[in-house]
Each structure stands twice: as structure tokens, then as C-alpha cells.
């Protein structure tokens, strides 16, 4: 979610193409959230079916375990972009929010830079890894790289996310480490 405008934010907003990019990333994040929710729903449904079928009919299906693992991995890897975009990652900003304007801005730029570097390091290994994973998985007739692919898709999106943040802080469109209220319960149901 884009950060809500705050009184102490700079007056000038980002230009139109940047805003469009933000909307695009938000849209992808929304779609991914639906996808990972469905992954979890199918995982639970399949395994519940397996448990019941095994205890009532005495029949269990081996492919369910393989598919559960695949869905599990997809859920985690696509979820990487979702929780980064939703700013759910754990951040210790207790010191940073106390810094005055300029150092704080530099720290904000630095944090984004670290994110970009990590994603580049992940993407750098992609060609080698994918080339080694062309064989089919056990009991699922898909190449092994199908399991790893979402990591690299997420990495590209997270890279874009941090780049946009970097630009926004650099040009003063948004503030580094905005002071947030003590977050309230984020449990599913209140």
C-alpha cells in the first residue's frame, strides 16, 4: 500500500509515470495476495481430504504431498513480494525515527539500497540455477524450475519496489522512516 500523505511530507508529489508504476505494483501485490490465499486454501483442502479418505476409506494419495509442497513453496515465494510491499517485514526503526532530516534521509536511501543489492544477488544466481533444474519433479510432470521461478519473479518486483522507494526518498516525495503509531492488533479478526 502506498504510504498515506502526512503533514510533514514534502509538498511536491511524484510525477505521473512514477504514480502509474506504484499503482501497477499495488495491483500485482493484490493479485499475488489472492494467489497465495488460494494456495493455502487448496493445501488445506487437499490434506483434509487425504486425512478423511485415509481414515474412512483406507485410501491415501501420494501425489497430495508433492502438490502440497509445491503450493507451499509458491505461497512463500510470491508472498515475499506481498509482505515487502505491504510493509509487514520486521523493521527496527526506533533509532532512525529519532534522526533529524538529512541523516534520516540518507539512512532511508541506504535501507532501500541494501534491498536492491540483495535482490540483485538473488537474480544473479537465476540463470545457473534454472539451467540445472530442467528435469521433471518427482511425481509432478513439471520441470523443477517451475518451483523456483516465483522466487525470481518476486525478486524483480521487490527490486522495483525498493528502487521506487529510493527515488521517492531521494526526491523528497515521501519521507524516510515515517513515524507510525503503535500498530494495533493485526490479527485476522478483531
Amino acid at each position: 500500500m502506498p504510504q498515506a500523505p502526512r503533514p510533514d511530507d514534502a509538498v511536491i508529489g511524484p510525477p505521473r509515470p512514477i504514480r502509474h508504476l506504484h499503482q501497477l505494483l499495488d495491483g500485482v501485490s493484490f493479485a499475488f495476495k489472492i494467489a497465495i490465499t488460494l494456495c493455502l486454501a487448496v493445501m488445506v483442502a487437499l490434506n483434509l481430504f487425504n486425512v478423511i479418505s485415509r481414515s474412512v476409506l483406507g485410501v491415501a494419495y501420494g501425489w497430495i504431498f508433492s502438490w502440497t509442497m509445491l503450493l507451499f513453496v509458491w505461497m512463500l515465494l510470491l508472498g515475499l513480494f506481498v509482505f515487502i510491499r505491504d510493509r509487514r517485514d520486521v523493521v527496527v526503526d526506533v533509532f532512525m525515527t529519532r534522526l533529524p532530516g538529512m541523516p534520516r534521509r540518507i539512512a532511508g536511501l541506504f535501507a532501500c539500497g541494501v534491498g536492491v543489492a540483495v535482490m540483485l544477488a538473488i537474480l544473479r544466481g537465476a540463470p545457473t540455477l534454472l539451467k540445472l533444474q530442467t528435469a521433471p519433479m518427482d511425481s509432478i510432470d513439471l520441470p523443477i524450475y517451475v518451483r523456483s521461478m516465483p522466487l525470481f519473479i518476486s525478486a524483480v518486483l521487490v527490486l522495483l519496489h525498493f528502487l521506487l522507494d529510493f527515488v521517492a526518498i531521494a526526491f523528497g516525495w515521501s519521507q524516510a522512516f515515517p513515524r507510525t503509531e503503535e500498530p494495533v492488533e493485526v490479527g485476522a479478526v478483531e
Binding site: 497465495i36 493455502l40 486454501a41 505461497m75 515465494l77 508472498g79 505491504d86 485476522a188
Partner: peptide, 13 residues
């Protein structure tokens, strides 16, 4: 479901 999926992703990553 959605909350659990996001939270699982965070911890596993």
C-alpha cells in the same frame, strides 16, 4: 486464509 498466507511467507522467508 489471507492473513495466514502472508504471515507464513514472512516467517519462512
Amino acid at each position: 486464509l489471507a492473513e495466514s498466507a502472508v504471515l507464513s511467507a514472512l516467517i519462512m522467508m
